[in-house]
Amino acid sequence: MADRGDVIIAHHLCKGCRLCIVSCPAKVLEQGTALNQQGYCAALYRGSGCTGCGICFYVCPEPGAITVRVRKLGEGKPAA
C-alpha cells in the first residue's frame, strides 16, 4: 500500500534542531550526517512511512524548510 503522505525537507534550510525528528509519530525522519551549507546536519526523510500528519511542519521553526504533501483523494488505494 502506498503512503498517504510525503515530506520534503529543504536540505539547505534545515538547522538540524531535531524537533521534527523527535516529534514524528511515524518515526520516519532522521538526522543526516552530511553538513549543509549552514554547517548543520539536516534532517532527512527515510523515504517511506509518512502519514502526512503535518506535525513536523508545525514544530519546525524555519518557514520554508518542510513541505508536507498528501495523496489526492481517491488515489493510492489499491485498484478495485
Binding site: 539547505h12 538547522k15 538540524g16 534542531c17 524537533l19 514544530v59 519546525c60 521553526p61 524555519e62 518557514p63
Partner: peptide, 19 residues
C-alpha cells in the same frame, strides 16, 4: 543568506511566526 531566518536552531520564534 536570504533564504533562512536568523533564529537559532529550535527557537520558538520561528514556530510562532509560521503560525
Amino acid at each position: 543568506n536570504t533564504e533562512i531566518t536568523h533564529y537559532c536552531p529550535g527557537c520558538g520564534h520561528g514556530v510562532m511566526q509560521k503560525l
